[in-house]
Amino acid sequence: MAAAAAAGAGPEMVRGQVFDVGPRYTNLSYIGEGAYGMVCSAYDNVNKVRVAIKKISPFEHQTYCQRTLREIKILLRFRHENIIGINDIIRAPTIEQMKDVYIVQDLMETDLYKLLKTQHLSNDHICYFLYQILRGLKYIHSANVLHRDLKPSNLLLNTTCDLKICDFGLARVADPDHDHTGFLTEYVATRWYRAPEIMLNSKGYTKSIDIWSVGCILAEMLSNRPIFPGKHYLDQLNHILGILGSPSQEDLNCIINLKARNYLLSLPHKNKVPWNRLFPNADSKALDLLDKMLTFNPHKRIEVEQALAHPYLEQYYDPSDEPIAEAPFKFDMELDDLPKEKLKELIFEETARFQPGYRS
């Protein structure tokens, strides 16, 4: 834990890192770190609560700039109880001085990944967590956004079992017609939660990839272990087919990539493993919904509104309290091709509203 900075004593240090967030945020305490930044909790002297502050230093890398800009653009436009918001952003007053960006968010005690390492969940908890994931996802999908990296560590939890989806750095506007060349190379989302079509096709992607990830998360809540822990690309596919069985001819016809289709045709026939054999203690309604989410063919996979209306979630289902976005989200430009200098300018502009004396 960093010592509390005395008023006016300059930035606090946390594990050798400068955290320049005073005077409003003090009493910093280390939480963890990701690929390009550290997260601390801090005391907000204005709202009198502890908050989470993520320090991001992305400006050396085009990919990190892209992810940072995506996350900020999306989260500043989203407003939903099951999606983490941005409360404040701290950065230098000029673009030349801006080396880091500090993002202030609600402090959540833990995440689903940490929880599943230590606790076996009751059916009631599984049901409530799944409902909140789908409630947040309904809003995301209504904005025409794909999260693309749903996994237990991106689901934040607090002691009252509130759940918030975080990390929109890989999110995209849904565009089933656009052929994202190089899709697989830039697709760094965790393999275990990846839909089979991501490994088999490169053309376009749809909201059904997020539903697949939610199915993987439900299976993990039922058993405290990942359902498809593939060691590499082909191993991942083999794990999936080992449980779902061989795809039907109709399902194979959806695979545009001939090499991928021929690979699947070359494999020995596998039978589907019954879900109640894998999860003998699970609620039968939970397994019915799991089956509809972990469907090989993305066109037959359940959609988020149908999933919310499934009998497993009937005690929570309330369409009048499951809000959607006001308007579909649009990125003005494809960020993939922009140089990091341009992305830095866009991050600077996007964060201006939090600067003292800002006038829109």
Rank of each mutant, 00 (worst) to 15 (best):
Y102Q: 10
I256D: 11
Y317A: 08
P152K: 02
I133H: 04
E81H: 07
R91T: 02
I90L: 08
H239K: 06
A327Q: 01
Q236K: 12
F59W: 10
R70D: 01
L265I: 01
T295R: 08
A5E: 11
E341Q: 11
K231P: 01
K48S: 10
Y263V: 06
K114P: 08
L241C: 00
N253W: 04
Q66W: 10
Q62T: 10
A260C: 04
L130W: 03
G242Y: 04
C161M: 05
D251R: 09
W212K: 10
G32N: 04
P328I: 07
H239Y: 11
Q66L: 15
L222Q: 14
D124C: 04
S208W: 05
P11M: 14
R359H: 03
P274Q: 15
D337H: 10
L241M: 15
K54C: 00
I243H: 05
S213W: 01
S246T: 06
L289R: 07
A325S: 13
L200M: 13
T181S: 15
D106P: 01
Q119S: 07
D175W: 04
N201E: 12
A3Q: 12
G182N: 09
V273D: 02
A5W: 07
A5P: 10
R148I: 09
R24M: 02
I243M: 03
N257F: 12
I302G: 04
S57K: 13
F279C: 06
H239C: 12
S223Y: 15
K330Y: 06
Q315S: 04
R172A: 06
D175I: 09
V39L: 10
K203A: 10
A327L: 12
R77W: 11
N257Q: 12
T26D: 09
Q236N: 02
L130K: 04
R225V: 02
L267S: 06
P58W: 15
R359Q: 09
I74T: 12
Y358D: 10
R191M: 07
S29W: 00
L338K: 11
L150T: 02
A307V: 12
F59D: 09
K54A: 04
R172L: 14
L76H: 02
Q97C: 11
N144P: 04
L335K: 03
L69Y: 02
A4Y: 01
R67S: 13
D336G: 00
D336R: 05
M108W: 03
H141D: 06
A195W: 05
Y263P: 03
S360F: 11
Y193H: 12
A5F: 00
P93H: 04
Y312P: 01
G37F: 00
I86K: 00
M333I: 15
D167M: 05
K259G: 08
D162V: 13
D44K: 08
L335N: 13
D291N: 12
M221A: 09
Y36K: 12
I56M: 09
V51C: 14
A6H: 13
D179L: 04
M333W: 07
I255V: 01
N123E: 08
A260V: 12
G204T: 04
S122N: 11
T26Q: 04
G10F: 11
I198H: 06
I89S: 10
S213D: 07
R301F: 08
R194C: 12
L264P: 11
V14E: 11
V145L: 12
V101D: 02
F329H: 12
G357W: 08
N262M: 02
L343K: 09
V14K: 10
L184S: 12
G245W: 01
P280E: 11
F228R: 01
R194M: 04
V14R: 09
M293N: 02
S202R: 13
S208D: 06
A174M: 10
I209G: 08
N154S: 11
L115Q: 14
I347R: 10
A35I: 07
Q17K: 13
L170N: 02
I302E: 03
G230T: 00
L115K: 00
F168A: 09
T295Y: 02
I209E: 12
Q97Y: 12
V304W: 13
C254Q: 07
Q306H: 14
T63G: 12
W275F: 03
D106L: 01
T63I: 12
P247M: 02
K73Y: 10
L134W: 03
S284T: 14
G204L: 08
K272T: 08
T190A: 11
T94N: 14
P280N: 06
E303N: 04
D318Y: 13
K73R: 02
T94E: 04
